[in-house]
């Protein structure tokens, strides 16, 4: 059972971080990062099947793969930013966490610009045809 392994790794990391936090706070942060990376690698192989289903659905719906790729990138940016911001908060650097989130929001907006433009173009085209 993968979930048992994941929960076990998470619990061990939590106990170790609790012990190290009082003795060696810098190592506690490193341990937190390592636990996060291990958990991510454990589920990395299963993400492929999810992406396959999403790609199939988008093909059926006639959605361009460019838009789907953008959405995937945005979801990835959001996860990585959340991951980094949480680690920063755990380390007591709340200000840095806020900056990471801000940067992630800007990046998401930049990636969303082509989609916004496509929505506008589609709406204008549809209104032009109807008129």
């Amino acid at each position: 059972m993968d979930v048992v392994q994941i929960v076990a790794i998470g619990l061990m990391a939590t106990v170790l971080i609790g012990v190290l936090k009082s003795q060696r706070p810098e190592l506690a942060v490193l341990l937190s990062v390592a636990a996060g990376v291990i958990l991510f690698l454990l589920v990395l192989g299963k993400i492929g099947s999810i992406v396959g289903v999403i790609t199939d659905l988008s093909n059926r719906a006639g959605i361009s793969m460019v838009y789907l790729g953008t959405i995937m990138k945005i979801i990835g940016i959001a996860y990585i930013a959340e991951f980094g911001a949480q680690i920063c908060r755990d380390a007591g650097a709340g200000a840095v966490a806020t900056k990471i989130e801000f940067a992630a929001k800007i990046l998401i907006m930049v990636l969303a610009v082509p989609i916004v433009v496509a929505v506008l173009q589609s709406l204008l085209k549809l209104l032009g045809e109807a008129g």
Binding site: I77, A78, A81, E101, I108, M109
Partner: peptide, 9 residues
Amino acid sequence: PAGQMRAYV
């Protein structure tokens, strides 16, 4: 994701 990024995505 469940955090603040959720609304943007």
